[in-house]
Design a protein around this nucleic acid. Structure first.
Lengths: 232, 232
DNA sequence: TAGCCTTATTTTGTATACAATTTATCCTGA
DNA sequence: TCAGGATAAATTGTATACAAAATAAGGCTA
């Protein structure tokens, strides 16, 4: 598979194709991306005027998008006081991982049984994309490749509910993961663990996938908490 | 604990106290309640005018509420075609239970270790409320009591993420459960199973809670699928 | 009478205007 | 200098108005 085709496939999986969407969906995506990419920091207050400029839409649209993102836990609303980017403390992270542990492990197990051959191939390609962006030191691409990897994983487990639950959680911890990518030691460790998970998934080995998932989650949890205690 | 005080506690737990909320939150709650209570049927189309009359608010507020409920999976939106009440087919139910199984079981396990004594007492009271409304044949009250029971369970497990994930799922299957309450055989079965779960929770017996949760979930799943095949 | 095209009505998409509340500014007095 | 408070600016809460799209209705032709 050439680099070009691979990127194309990745874009399709992540829903990045240029399709006509309502202004609300566009605005939603724009704000979400701004948060995930770290352009807005956790706890930061977002004024409607600022967002209106960012998205180029009027407040009607904007407020619908905000209500949606609030429901997904990405934003916090206080009456008469506007929206702020959701902030995670150590406790929230603990809770998130307590939920992720059984769900994500289940997703990995189900993937080994239900994924199509194409999805297995994609998992492999996604991991290779992660590895190559790691070698190249391209953090932006590494984030995208990681999103691709998990997107395929959550699709291949053939359970929309699991997918939605995990996507929400992923969104909320994403900006923390970005900071983690700056830690080269952690990056190396994550790459190894994801390699094990990817191998198990490709081999359709349920038990190995389960173990790799548990290991990866525990390791990620510790890294995040460590990161949090450093950056406040 | 008198009947009066118990109801008061129940209202507090379910957030039914009369507190000042923004119009949007009120509208949201009104629409949600209309769906959960079965006033709107699954798949039904909801026009904004109709909802505007129901909630007494203007469309600005309404559409924010709708965006929120859509994000929670209770409503489906089609561009230029409005909102419909989310509909569950057999596959969706299967997926939901696949997610619920590990998460809800975990919630029950955590409850036995983390709940306060007051919450344990509440679980007991909630189950008694279910049992008494069952004897009285009061279906409306039975639904409220059941919501109370699970609300306490999800609070007592001390994990907001689990609580949110499960509340969402509960909302979406609630109108199916209402239909189930009409089945007296199923009602009796459910009461027995919840009794076992309640006992385990009150005794803070982790293993027993785990088993009771698994049993209850499997039984509920089968009943729902059976119900669905009957009603279409 | 059935099918299709045109028109009318309803419904949704979007933007703007005004009111209520909060936040910022700056002035006064001790 | 600083605390307090009155006033001004900014921001959010709410309602309404207009445009675009979809649905329904009606009539025409075969």
């Amino acid at each position: 598979m050439t680099e070009h085709l691979l990127n194309h496939r990745m874009d399709a999986t992540l829903g990045l194709d240029t399709v006509e969407r309502s202004l609300r969906e566009q605005a939603q995506a724009t704000i979400r991306e701004a948060i995930l990419s770290g352009r807005f920091t956790a706890g930061e207050k977002l004024t409607e005027r600022q967002l209106s400029e960012l998205t180029g839409t009027s407040r009607s649209i904007l407020r619908e998008a905000l209500a949606h993102l609030e429901a997904r836990g990405l934003l916090i609303r206080q009456t008469h006081r506007g929206y702020t980017v959701a902030k995670l403390d150590a406790r929230s992270i603990h809770e998130i991982f307590e939920l992720r542990q059984p769900v994500e492990t289940l997703a990995a197990e189900l993937f080994t049984e239900r994924a199509s051959d194409r999805e297995v191939a994609e998992i492999k390609a996604a991991f290779e994309a992660i590895a190559s962006s790691f070698k190249a030191g391209d953090l932006r691409k590494m984030r995208t490749a990681k999103e691709w990897f998990f997107s395929v994983l959550f699709t291949g487990c053939r359970n929309t509910e699991i997918r939605k639950a995990l996507e929400n959680v992923f969104d909320r911890i994403s900006y923390l993961r970005i900071q983690l990518l700056n830690d080269s030691e952690r990056r190396k460790q994550a790459l190894i663990e994801m390699g094990q998970l990817a191998n198990a998934l490709v081999a359709r080995d349920r038990d190995a996938a389960r173990n790799a998932s548990i290991t990866h989650l525990e390791s990620a949890r510790q890294a995040l908490i460590k990161q949090l205690s450093k950056s406040g």
